[in-house]
Write a protein that binds this DNA or RNA. Structure first.
Lengths: 193, 193, 193, 193
DNA sequence: GATGAATGAGAGTTCATTCAT
DNA sequence: AATGAATGAACTCTCATTCAT
């Protein structure tokens, strides 16, 4: 079996998502991740500095992929409203299709020491910027109120989506997350107008 | 010095808020809380089952006080819009005036094992119900859309407020949280209409 | 059983000498010392910062006791030659009667990171000073050469005694260490004259 | 580039002296030595059994060279006093000119498990024998006391030189070690007479 | 011979919790 | 009720050593 460079790193990362989602970040031991990945404990430390580094790397990988995918989708949109719908849909669909990732993003990620964690805040800011750009575009297109505070609006938009997902994760029930895109969009677009 | 029953419990709880806010839940040792409270380590276990119980009790105490206070305020409101404004104002003002409490609520509380934590979800549900009642009232008063999904609307409302506070806490900057009540209300009320 | 303050600390220290002498510093686990002392692993950390701290504390305790005892003996001496003999006798007798202590002093103690270890060099300097004072006294009493370099003389005296003990420890043979005081004294006193 | 047999072994040995002297035996990782030597970690194990073997081999190489060189010098001496002076001078000069070697000999070498380490005691005995031969010669030449205990005398001589060097290494100060040969010789020769 | 990624045993240390006083 | 010394399970991380390439 030929192993490409970085393949083992990804194997560990995949094992970590599963394990964090199942057991929770703090309850997860390095040995659990290593076991799930099928490598030795020590191997984990070849690719990651420590446990926190795994969680952060996990988020960065996810978030970068998420933002890149979203940017791609947004290029096909005709106006801010279309883009807002895309943001909501993309966010809900992505996490709705990846319950483990959703669990890690919504719950476990908030378990680490938030001592201004650059590793987390930076990729997140990329997403925040994307949302703010949509709002700004909507204002310039005359779709949204001129007196709208962009920063606050972004917080409301992100907070709303985030809460909807968190509730879905916490409930543990298998209802469709993606279907909520309609009522969420209806509220948020009205809020911006 | 006269000690009323439960006074020492409160002393420990107060010490816990401070310490959790300063050091973070997981970094905080029972000895730290005991030290801050001026009692012996063992004394903490007379009043609380374990470390998690302190955090949960903390939240329950805060949340009950919060919901009671909010209910009181709501009795003085004339309609759903008024009530919505009150909810937002009360939430932002309360936490804006208690940075330690805000830190614990927004950050530390999410650090505990979310194994369907009854102690947290129950008091929180009381608040959720309050918000949903306001929305239902608004619908029956003809202020809000009839096709509004109450559950989703509640998530959007709570998520928006919650995110605004989290950003405030995370930023560490001393801007006025309460002032954000206007733009937040403006967006949410539009979203409900 | 009444435990006086500091008694448990001494119990651990005693267990440490035995264990270090038997197994060697690096091969000794904290669990071994705790086991020998009849306490829990964690208890060791109530009284000592870490493993190295045990070894250093051990040496300080021994050395202080040693220097105090030696000073006491020296008060009864009539001249520098008498004092030199006392130093040699006391040093050889003390370690000759405590093989475990000798093993730790001569071998194990030299295993720790000699990054200018204050904890070890300071108590040792007290002993060095004592020897130098004897030599200075001998010079002023006209017993030793006037052109004698005190510092070097001290190194020769200490080095000689130290080597004799190290050989005794390393040999593992049960010959009398104390008996060597005569030939050692004969050589050193001639060297100083 | 022509590589003579054993050349790489010597490269590793040289890297080890440097690294041990800089970092200390226990703090030094095989990877450090390999890095310093410019070879892969695994390569070290082609030439040495384990970490301890490197240290022992190091000492053996040094000590054999040392004893050979000293023997050579001694052939040019006319009597025991001359030889004693040569031993002291050679020992102090050799280590005085090689601080790294001195650090390893005086400090790091004493860090290994002294489970009757043949590898170290055997080369050392060669040196001890050399010293004892000088003393015996001195006695037969009528230069030294007839009642002198050769074994003890050797310990005093070696111990004195050894301590002088250890103090020099530990002090970290750049004073001339070789200059001490005069006062050391003066004391030791008097001690033997 | 050379490589270096992978291994996995091993131990120091922490700290929530207990319980004799 | 209060104390705080003692407990000991738990877990991260290191690094000497191996071995497939």
């Amino acid at each position: 079996m030929v192993k490409r460079t970085g393949e083992k790193r990804q194997v560990i990362l995949d094992a970590a998502v599963k394990t964090f989602a199942r057991t929770g970040y703090h309850r997860t031991r390095i040995a659990d991740i290593a076991g799930e990945a099928g490598v030795a404990d020590g191997t984990v430390y070849i690719y990651f500095t420590n446990k926190e580094d795994i969680l952060v790397s996990l988020f960065q990988t996810m978030m970068n992929r998420f933002v890149d995918g979203l940017k791609e989708e947004l290029t096909r949109c005709i106006d801010a409203n279309d883009k807002l719908k895309t943001v909501i849909t993309y966010h809900l669909t992505t996490l709705g299709n990846n319950p483990d990732q959703a669990k890690v993003t919504q719950i476990e990620l908030r378990q680490i020491d938030n001592t201004i964690n650059e590793g987390i805040s930076k990729p997140l800011k990329n997403y925040f910027n994307l949302i703010e750009e949509v709002i700004i575009e909507g204002k310039s297109q005359g779709l949204y109120r001129q007196n709208l505070d962009v920063r606050t609006a972004r917080k409301v938009v992100f907070g709303a989506i985030d809460e909807v997902i968190t509730c879905w994760v916490m409930s543990g029930k298998p209802y469709s997350l993606a279907k909520l895109k309609v009522p969420v969009f209806d509220m948020l677009v009205r809020g911006l107008q």
